[in-house]
Simulated scan of single mutants.
Amino acid sequence: MTTEDVLDIFRKAGAYLEGHFILTSGRRSKVFLQKARVFMHADATETLCRALAERIRQEVDGPVDYVVGPAVGGLIPAYETSRHLKVPAIWVERENGTFRLRRFEIEPGARVVIVEDIVTTGLSIRETITCMEALGARVLAAACIVDRSAGKVDVGVPLIALAQYEVASYDPADLPPELAAIPPVKPGSRSL
């Protein structure tokens, strides 16, 4: 599956939005990929996550014990990707601002892959890695549907992206005039 194939799925689902968006990272962008509009369609989600699972199989050495998704955005792609990998899906949730594995236990040495929806700065993945490593897990890689940095972000482990699509993002204090003229909206889930 190519980046254009992935973007076509987003476009067909009405999930490729243009305007002035406040990203989860706090940065601003003219484009927002509203993955919730894709994930509401089981067939589109299955297509993307089956392809992501295949990439994980190709790039990760050895077995995977768990797929871990950071809540909220990683829940659906982690679950669907784990289904194709035939391993359990678990997730981390924010508790007092820090990711915790609240509903599950893992064995020390468990081999995990983190699956996220869209990566811009990689913060959620890095926070998930910190949580998993504190529990004794071995984080083999992270994977995502779309890497908005087009391979530039460093999450601390190999990052497997179904699509690499660089979208310019801006510091809120340094917006281009055409973006500053549009009222911003914040569609992300970081504050949940």
Rank of each mutant, 00 (worst) to 15 (best):
residue 8 D to P: 00
residue 8 D to S: 14
residue 9 I to Y: 02
residue 9 I to D: 01
residue 9 I to P: 01
residue 10 F to G: 03
residue 10 F to E: 07
residue 13 A to V: 12
residue 13 A to E: 14
residue 14 G to T: 15
residue 19 G to E: 02
residue 20 H to V: 05
residue 20 H to L: 06
residue 20 H to W: 05
residue 21 F to S: 05
residue 22 I to K: 08
residue 22 I to T: 14
residue 23 L to I: 14
residue 24 T to E: 09
residue 27 R to A: 12
residue 27 R to G: 10
residue 28 R to K: 13
residue 29 S to K: 05
residue 31 V to P: 15
residue 34 Q to V: 08
residue 36 A to T: 10
residue 36 A to F: 05
residue 38 V to K: 07
residue 39 F to D: 05
residue 39 F to W: 14
residue 39 F to H: 09
residue 40 M to Q: 15
residue 41 H to M: 05
residue 41 H to P: 02
residue 41 H to Y: 12
residue 46 E to D: 14
residue 50 R to G: 00
residue 50 R to T: 06
residue 52 L to I: 05
residue 55 R to E: 13
residue 56 I to E: 00
residue 57 R to L: 03
residue 57 R to Q: 05
residue 61 D to L: 10
residue 61 D to W: 12
residue 62 G to V: 02
residue 63 P to L: 09
residue 64 V to F: 00
residue 65 D to T: 08
residue 65 D to F: 04
residue 66 Y to K: 12
residue 66 Y to N: 07
residue 68 V to R: 01
residue 69 G to H: 09
residue 70 P to T: 11
residue 75 L to A: 09
residue 77 P to M: 13
residue 77 P to V: 06
residue 79 Y to F: 11
residue 80 E to Q: 07
residue 81 T to E: 03
residue 82 S to C: 01
residue 85 L to K: 02
residue 86 K to S: 11
residue 86 K to W: 01
residue 86 K to D: 02
residue 90 I to Y: 03
residue 92 V to M: 04
residue 95 E to N: 15
residue 96 N to W: 05
residue 98 T to H: 04
residue 100 R to N: 06
residue 101 L to Y: 06
residue 101 L to G: 01
residue 103 R to P: 01
residue 103 R to K: 06
residue 111 R to Y: 03
residue 112 V to T: 06
residue 114 I to L: 11
residue 116 E to H: 00
residue 121 T to S: 08
residue 123 L to S: 08
residue 123 L to A: 07
residue 123 L to C: 02
residue 123 L to M: 08
residue 126 R to F: 12
residue 130 T to Q: 11
residue 130 T to Y: 09
residue 130 T to D: 11
residue 130 T to K: 12
residue 132 M to W: 07
residue 133 E to P: 08
residue 135 L to V: 14
residue 135 L to K: 15
residue 136 G to K: 15
residue 137 A to V: 13
residue 138 R to K: 12
residue 140 L to A: 10
residue 142 A to H: 03
residue 144 C to D: 12
residue 145 I to K: 01
residue 150 A to F: 12
residue 151 G to V: 10
residue 153 V to S: 01
residue 154 D to W: 09
residue 155 V to P: 11
residue 161 A to H: 08
residue 161 A to S: 13
residue 162 L to N: 07
residue 162 L to A: 03
residue 163 A to L: 02
residue 164 Q to R: 07
residue 166 E to H: 11
residue 168 A to N: 14
residue 170 Y to I: 13
residue 173 A to D: 15
residue 175 L to S: 08
residue 176 P to R: 11
residue 177 P to A: 11
residue 177 P to E: 15
residue 179 L to D: 14
residue 179 L to M: 11
residue 180 A to L: 12
residue 181 A to I: 00
residue 182 I to Q: 09
residue 185 V to R: 01
residue 186 K to L: 09
residue 186 K to D: 15
residue 191 S to Q: 14
